[in-house]
Design a protein around this nucleic acid. Structure first.
Length: 942
RNA sequence: GCUGAAGUGGUGGAAUUGGUAGACACGUUGGACUUAAAAUCCAAUGGCCAUUAUGGCCGUGCGGGUUCAAGUCCCGCCUUCAGUACCA
């Protein structure tokens, strides 16, 4: 009987689907375990072999946990809103929903053929109104909440309105855009509805604001910071410019400290946590207020500094060119110069400014500020090294203590007072925060960094010109996109003010449009919709031309960004078909949070940060029991493609084999990897008859070396455009899903980036054939009830131990090797014993579930192997008596003991001492002293 | 610049708390089986030297150090990858 993987895999995939083998429900007898993959965006290209890597790993772990007696939740779905489907719609007019549906069908077929143990009954798509209803719902909750600093949590905005009515905002300690604005209860109650709403927007956790955003003209939409890479859009690589626009924002900054603190409680990789820490960018220091001299309106400039101890070293101030006071304070003599400078720097894009760090530029405003303590005048400059978007957009310049201030001062010949005792600052600034005493600094004289900082803050607070402050780099996230294919906002506008649709009328479904481009007057694509107005009496979406501004109002034209749908999906899996609630209390209390989350590290400062923010918000509302949603997170590495190149000589057009290039002027051209064999030889005939590119090479001349054409190779990201994509369909057809699964794990450590090389798959494929032969030969199933030998049991238990350790540590690659060794050993031992080969199957089954099920059935089991218990390791089988397995004597001073490490130190000492005594007696010498050191090796010291 | 990860044969990669470096697999070479190929099986495979055989020396990016013992620990460099950056 041959190992016919095709029939076996089809059979068991059908069996799992029919019996809903992996359907998860409440089960109080078993502990729960929740394993989740980052759900995919279903792109038109389908899966390549790199995509399933993380899914295979999580599937192995999920299956393992089932064997270990856990009730496992392992769902899957689709993050189906996104740009590619919309771009396709723009080009072809096909509705993105249709494209998405087609792509999902392909994804599902490809996923199914790999044999994942997903609970498909819980599948959902973020673009399904039944799902995005709840995305809209969370948005409304955010709108109806503010952040209370006293309780350090989000609370209903209605509570805040109560306080305003009775006490004004003097005693309110909440996160607000403008913490200088003060009003009494009388003032509040006298405000118009519009004025009140305007104020509340400054407190709401999602709010409408005029903000400087990253606008991508090419894509016609704004982008979040994490959607921009090196100054161009992540998707498509289009340029991005800064632009002021009214946008929905998420007040994630209110959660900055909690997002930072939460990292300490979760088991995520250090590099990922570090990325998030950097992104949040906490720095401690002080805010200092400088009064502008000779200013009729008493203007002040606030700065943030991490070095309040250097306050007496301030010799000038620098404002960002965009700073709001630039125009107000500039003197008439300097007006022209300042205008020119501001205009020039506005022209330069952010990217140019970043690229050009070395050129120092700036201009004097003619105005002076007053030093808070010395009252000396401080010239106010403008310089583009100060960023409007960080801190307050203004700095107090301390040239002796900051290199950029120092360079600026040198360039414009400004004063550089030294406030560091015995430090030479003639060449560069002294930026260390050491124990150097401060001098020329009045009350700070003689103090070191730490003490001076404390004292400076104290003195600033005394004169009410500053206070200790913690600044975060993390900025509020723009939540609007000017696109069609995203969640519509449940928002309509009355007199220009946003109103939420009552939650019970959700979802607000995406309207039909006949054009997916922005409208002629620049509105987002939803501006093309004809039925897109909200009727507040019937609570329905109605035609735009019915808008009467009394009961029927315009709806929001923006849609939500890509990360909206993925920010709470992991909770929805717990109760995905609930129409009445986002999820039931019972469900969330049972499943709690994700135990293991697997996905790519590229989401470090996007999805993985935003979703933590949503979870904390939902925790504040009492909706979820945990304020972190994923206990453990693993970033799977990427599988890279091995591209192949031919070399075309520029003048002759001949293609030279790699070894013949020498110093010829050649151009390297990607060719499809399927025409290249393991020895890097090109199948020229295949290439010439290729359906897509055959024409290009039909008449080409290939110059061979030693009778073959050798291609060049390079490891790159798998991509259609590089022709190095390997399709899992082909692998499954040729070697089977079990081979694919094993090989992807065998390639290397899960977290690592590694190149794919199809030729290596024969190794694991042969292993599966050998495994099959261990159970089945020409006469059929060959397992017997024979007593296992000691060798058999040793192999089995060695394997149990290793595989269990490997899975717990997520080193799946080494356990594949362990299997190979086990099968080789048992084959050599001619083992047919049921007592060994049956439990062994359970070890394999997470990795190669199809073959395991097939053989399991041959043992007479009617239930899936996934119900079987993981075999229990028994160290006794590894401890051999010294008679049969003498302690091996190796070299001059070391013994190696073949036994498990959990045997006690004393036992080893006794055994080795006994052995040494016999040896000594035989050799007629005195026994050496035995010292056992941790590890496998025993030292004998003479 | 800063932060994080990593440098081991021709290749992917093993090596537990410091304990026989190169497991396992690919590839390569030789052999068996075949008219032949594929498939399968067997053997060899870090480098250098030596051989009838046993063997010897060198080897984990580089230079030091600790130790009976270092891929692993410490100090100083180099290189690669990833993230981030006039962050005050």
């Amino acid at each position: 009987m041959q190992y016919s993987f095709k029939a076996i895999e089809e059979k068991w995939q059908a069996f799992w689907a029919k019996n809903q083998t992996f359907k998860a429900g409440f089960n109080s007898d078993k502990p729960k375990y929740y394993v989740l993959d980052m759900f995919p965006y279903p792109s038109g290209a389908g899966l390549h072999v790199g995509h399933p890597l993380g899914y295979i790993a999580s599937d192995i772990y999920a299956r393992y946990k089932r064997h270990k007696g856990f009730n496992v939740l392992h769902p899957q779905g689709y993050d189906s809103f996104g740009l590619p489907a919309e771009q396709y719609a723009i080009q072809t007019g096909q509705h993105p929903a249709i494209t998405t549906e087609t792509n999902i069908a392909t994804y599902r077929r490809q996923l199914d053929q790999i044999g994942f143990s997903f609970d498909w009954s819980r599948e959902f798509r973020t673009s399904d109104p039944n799902y995005y209803k709840w995305t809209q719902w969370v948005f409304i909750q955010l709108f109806e909440s503010y952040y209370c600093n006293t309780d350090d949590k989000a609370k209903p905005i209605a509570k805040l309105v109560e306080v305003f009515k009775t006490n004004g905002n003097a005693a309110v300690n909440a996160v607000c855009d403008d913490d200088t604005e003060q009003f009494t209860k009388e003032e509040w109650n006298a405000f118009s509805e519009k004025e009140q709403q305007h104020i509340l927007l400054k407190y709401r956790l999602t709010y409408l604001a005029e903000a400087e955003v990253n606008w991508c003209p090419e894509l016609g939409t704004v982008l979040a910071n994490d959607e921009i890479v090196n100054g161009v859009s992540e998707r498509g690589g289009h340029p991005v410019v800064r632009k002021k626009m009214t946008q929905w924002m998420m007040r994630i900054s209110a959660y900055a400290q909690r997002l930072l603190d939460g990292l300490e409680t979760i088991d995520w990789t250090d590099s990922l946590k570090e990325s998030q820490r950097n992104w949040i960018g906490r720095s401690e220091g002080a805010s200092v207020t400088f009064k502008v001299k000779n200013c009729s309106q008493n203007h002040t400039i606030d700065v943030f500094t991490t070095r309040p101890d250097t306050i007496f070293g301030v010799s000038f101030m620098t404002l960002a060119p965009e700073h709001e006071l630039v125009n107000t304070i500039t003197t008439s003599e300097q007006q022209q110069a300042v205008d020119d400078y501001v205009k020039a720097s506005a022209k330069r894009s952010e990217r140019e400014r970043m690229a050009d760090v070395k050129t120092i530029s700036g201009v004097f405003t003619g105005a002076y500020a007053e030093h808070p303590f010395t009252k000396q005048p401080i010239p106010i400059w403008i310089g583009d090294y100060v960023l409007a978007s960080y801190g307050t957009g203004a700095v107090m310049a301390v040239p002796c203590g900051d290199q950029r201030d120092y360079d600026f001062a040198k360039h414009f010949s400004l004063e550089i007072p030294n406030i560091f005792e015995g430090v030479d600052i003639s060449e560069q600034a002294y930026t260390e925060k050491g124990n150097t005493a401060i001098t020329n600094s009045d009350f700070l004289n003689g103090l070191s960094y730490k003490k001076a900082t404390k004292r400076a803050i104290f003195e600033l607070e005394t004169i009410s010109q500053g206070k200790g402050k913690i600044n975060y780099r993390l900025r509020d996230a723009v939540f609007s996109r000017q696109r069609y294919w995203g969640e519509p906002f449940p928002v309509y506008y009355v007199d220009g003010l946003p109103q939420m649709v009552d939650a019970k009328h959700l979802p607000i479904e995406l309207p039909e449009v006949d054009n997916y481009l922005p409208t002629e007057n620049g509105e987002p694509p939803l501006g093309n919709a004809k039925i897109w107005a909200w009727d507040t009496t019937t609570h329905n979406v109605v035609a735009n031309d019915l808008i009467d501004n009394k009961t029927i109002f315009p709806l929001e034209l923006n849609t939500m960004p890509g990360w909206a749908g993925s920010s709470q999906y992991f909770n929805r899996y717990m109760d995905p078909n609930n129409d009445d609630e986002i999820f039931s209390k019972d469900a969330v209390n049972y499943w709690q949070q994700i135990d293991l989350y697997i996905g790519g590290s590229e989401h470090a400062t996007g999805h993985l940060l935003y979703s933590r923010f949503w979870q904390k918000f939902m925790f504040d509302l009492g909706l979820v029991p945990a304020d972190e949603y994923a206990k453990k997170l693993i970033n799977q590495g990427m599988i890279l493609g091995t591209s192949a190149f031919v070399y075309r000589e520029e003048n002759t057009g001949k293609y030279y084999s790699k070894g013949l290039i020498a110093d010829k002027k050649v151009q390297a051209i990607h060719v499809k990897v399927e025409y290249v064999n393991a020895s890097d030889e090109l199948d020229i005939e295949g290439l010439k008859t290729d359906a897509e590119f055959g024409e290009d090479y039909k008449n080409a001349e290939f110059v061979l070396e030693n009778g073959v054409y050798k291609v060049g190779r390079d490891v790159e990201k798998m991509s259609k455009s590089k022709y190095n994509v390997v399709n899992p369909d082909e692998i499954c057809a040729k070697y089977g899903a079990d081979s694919l699964r094993l090989y992807e794990m065998f390639l290397g450590p899960l977290e690592q980036y590694k190149p794919w090389n199809t030729s290596g798959i024969t190794g694991v494929h042969n292993f599966l054939k050998k495994l099959w032969k261990l159970y089945v030969d020409d006469n059929g199933f060959k397992i017997t009830d024979t007593e296992p030998t000691k060798d058999n049991l040793k192999t089995l238990h060695k394997t149990i131990k290793k595989v269990e350790d490997d899975i717990e540590n997520f080193s799946f690659n080494t356990s594949v090797s362990t299997f190979m060794i086990a099968v080789n050993e048992l084959t050599a031992q001619k083992c047919t014993s049921k007592a060994v080969l049956e439990p062994l199957l359970v070890l394999f089954s997470p990795y190669a579930p199809h073959i395991a099920e097939e053989l399991w059935e041959k043992f007479g089991h009617s239930q899936s192997i996934s119900t079987a218990q993981f075999p229990i390791f028994d160290a006794a089988h590894l401890v051999e008596s010294s008679k049969e397995y003498p302690i091996s004597f190796n070299g001059k001073m070391r013994f190696k003991l073949e036994m498990p490490l959990d045997i006690s130190k004393d036992d080893i000492e006794k055994m080795v001492l006994a052995h040494e005594k016999t040896q000594a007696q035989l050799q007629g010498r005195t026994p050496k002293k035995v010292i056992v050191v941790p590890g496998k090796i025993v030292n004998i010291v003479g």
